[in-house]
Amino acid sequence: MEGDRTGGARAGGEGSALPGRCAEVVDAFARHLRSERGRSAHTVRAYLGDIRHLLAHLGEQGIEELPETRLADLRSWLGAQADAGAARSTLARRAAAARTFFTWAEHTGRMPADPSLRLVAPKRTRTLPGVLKQAEADELLDLAAVRADDQDPVHHRDRAILELLYASGIRVGELAALDVDDIDMGQRTVRVMGKGGKERVVPFGLPAGRALEQWLTVRGRLVRPGSGPALFLGRRGHRVDPRQVRAVVHELLSHLPDAPDLGPHGLRHSAATHLLEGGADLRMVQELLGHASLATTQIYTHVSVDRLRQSYQQAHPRA
């Protein structure tokens, strides 16, 4: 069997039919991810890309039918990517996509058995996320407030965006998707639709509330036909997208020479780290950030310890 597969791979033609034959299966898997699993559009795109990549690899190995797939084939797929220099995070995601796909294929009768049960990818390297120091966060928001003193409504918008990102720790995609009605100024909360279609309500403080109020007083100057209920608008009246928000964060941070160059996700990391440094409960931070697992939130405890160690080494005479 191995010889046949190697020959098919060398010939380059026999296995090439498999991806085409599996088009219906991939489409059905996409519907499963969207409708039954409630996965986000971003996750669906990533998983489908991974599965198409896998099917192309299987075709190159001379595997013409999906039920022919074995654990060794899946391991060779991941191994080829590792040899090509793929990041551990990429390999972990692709292994997860393969397990989800083959589990679904077995449950729907498309596979006699799931070959991915013992498929293991390299463990992710838990890198410490970059964060601002509290003084740097204050300086950034003060700069945004100074710029908002002029008559440009976009500067008021930028200040409100930065204040809300740092105050709430929401994701940039969640912020871009906000509507005006998602803000409750009385309770100082924002209603967010997070990953997997899970809704949560996140509080924000007085500075963010004041910035939002000022933005809402000038938002009408950017409204155009078709603006709809979007909370944050661009100059042409369209809903802002994550790319625009990233540009705002990078541009303002560029004026702080000693601060790290972070995007909106860096403000999310900073908010979580500063909450924990201030004594917040880990599970409260988990709820605030919308993490499904507490283990994801725990990385911020490592960030805080790392910063404490750095401060100790700089300040203690016998460090």
Score class of each variant (00 low, 15 high):
residue 4 D to I: 09
residue 7 G to K: 03
residue 9 A to S: 15
residue 11 A to K: 01
residue 15 G to K: 03
residue 17 A to M: 03
residue 17 A to T: 12
residue 19 P to W: 04
residue 24 E to I: 14
residue 31 R to P: 00
residue 44 V to Q: 13
residue 46 A to G: 08
residue 50 D to C: 02
residue 53 H to T: 08
residue 53 H to W: 13
residue 54 L to G: 00
residue 59 G to I: 03
residue 62 G to P: 02
residue 64 E to D: 02
residue 66 L to D: 05
residue 68 E to C: 04
residue 68 E to A: 15
residue 72 A to V: 11
residue 75 R to E: 12
residue 89 S to L: 13
residue 93 R to E: 05
residue 95 A to Q: 05
residue 96 A to L: 10
residue 97 A to N: 02
residue 103 T to V: 05
residue 104 W to M: 13
residue 111 M to N: 08
residue 111 M to K: 02
residue 118 R to P: 13
residue 121 A to N: 08
residue 129 P to I: 09
residue 129 P to R: 05
residue 131 V to L: 00
residue 133 K to H: 15
residue 136 E to I: 03
residue 137 A to L: 10
residue 141 L to G: 04
residue 141 L to P: 02
residue 155 H to E: 15
residue 156 H to W: 04
residue 156 H to M: 10
residue 164 L to W: 00
residue 165 L to F: 00
residue 168 S to Q: 00
residue 180 V to S: 11
residue 180 V to E: 15
residue 185 M to C: 06
residue 190 V to P: 08
residue 192 V to H: 07
residue 197 G to N: 14
residue 204 F to P: 03
residue 205 G to Y: 13
residue 210 R to F: 01
residue 213 E to R: 14
residue 220 G to T: 07
residue 226 G to F: 12
residue 228 G to T: 06
residue 229 P to Q: 12
residue 234 G to P: 00
residue 235 R to Q: 08
residue 239 R to E: 02
residue 243 R to C: 13
residue 254 S to R: 13
residue 276 L to K: 00
residue 277 E to Y: 09
residue 283 R to Y: 04
residue 294 L to M: 08
residue 296 T to C: 07
residue 299 I to S: 12
residue 304 S to P: 00
residue 305 V to C: 02
residue 305 V to L: 14
residue 313 Q to T: 07
residue 317 P to R: 10
